[in-house]
Simulated assay, not measured.
Amino acid sequence: LSEEPAATPSDAEAEEIVAPVKCRGKRKPLPANLPRVEVIHDLPDHELTCACGACKQVIGEETSEQLEIIPMQVRVIRHIRKTYACKVCEAAPVTADKPAQLIEKSLASPSVLAMLLTTKYADGIPLYRFEKMLSRHGIDIPRQTLARWVIQSGELLQPLLNLMRDKLLEYPVLHCDETRLQVLHEPGRDPCAQSWMWVQSGGPPNRPVILFDYTASRAQEVPLRLLDGYRGYLMTDDYAGYNAVAAQEGIERLACWAHARRKFVDAQKVQPKGKTGRADMALNLINKLYGIERDLKDTDDSERLAARQQRSQPLLDQLK
């Protein structure tokens, strides 16, 4: 074996071996509205005295922030109702009234129902997972009970839903679309049967209203019922089920560019390779329309209308 020392890489080679350090982007500050808890870190007593014998003085401080999350706190509210009786006469005892409950004779307080609905519908957490979350705190509430609470909460929120629908139908622009939904264990229906969720969106731009309605049918009677009394612009796809409601007086149906664009994309795929056809021309014009809308995203209504008349209308004429 050779006794010569192993060759060492040059400085340039060594620099190449070191992995480049990625620059981290600027971190956003934590929201100012969050409560702050100050934790003071001071020098130990033996470091407060200088080597010369004098006491050190505070001349400044360094501050850093760290996010803290307090885990879910679970407690039991005991409602104690005092009962009074007169010891002089034989009048019947009187018990203090209990505050009205959202669900009478239920373990669920308003805070439990609020968290249940938030985790299910805003966070997309199924009931069986919420059941496990409670079990970690030693609380045994079966998902059947949780499901019943969800249904009862929906019934309690019906007045709010009615107000939202009124506001939806008042505004002169409404979007409607339906999407397939499969429901398991639905009474009287095959588990493979297709159901539908009808989504309606509208209302003022600063306070949008979005409503979901479940049906087992996709028939045109559904949008006729959901949009009964509506007058204004109705944005849908080309599904024929909207034809009846769109034919009503006072409703102007708007088509969707995203759906129309798909057909040109399909046509583009079957064009001969290397050839430019009408599908490419149409997609180019539609993309220009989308670009105009991106430019107008932060403008007000009057500016957007003027820009559409000046820039978008010629593109639409050319596309037609």
Rank of each mutant, 00 (worst) to 15 (best):
P172Y: 04
K269G: 01
D266W: 06
P172D: 02
L174E: 02
A244H: 15
V173M: 05
A247D: 12
L283K: 13
V199M: 15
A240G: 10
K269V: 04
A282H: 04
Y233E: 03
A255T: 15
P205T: 05
D301S: 08
G241K: 03
D295Q: 12
A260S: 07
E293C: 07
R262A: 09
V209K: 02
D237T: 12
M235N: 13
G277A: 09
H175V: 02
R304S: 10
N243S: 15
L296S: 08
K288A: 12
K273V: 06
D301G: 02
G250T: 00
A240R: 13
Y214K: 10
Q268F: 07
L174V: 10
P272H: 08
V209T: 08
L289C: 05
D228K: 04
D228S: 13
A193L: 07
L181Y: 06
C192P: 00
E178V: 04
L211C: 11
R231Q: 14
R225E: 12
A219Y: 05
N243H: 15
L224V: 11
R207P: 01
T276A: 11
L211Y: 11
Q248L: 13
I251H: 00
Y171C: 02
K263E: 12
C192A: 15
A219R: 15
K275R: 09
A247R: 13
E221I: 10
N284Y: 06
G188L: 07
Q268M: 11
Y233K: 09
R180Y: 10
K263D: 13
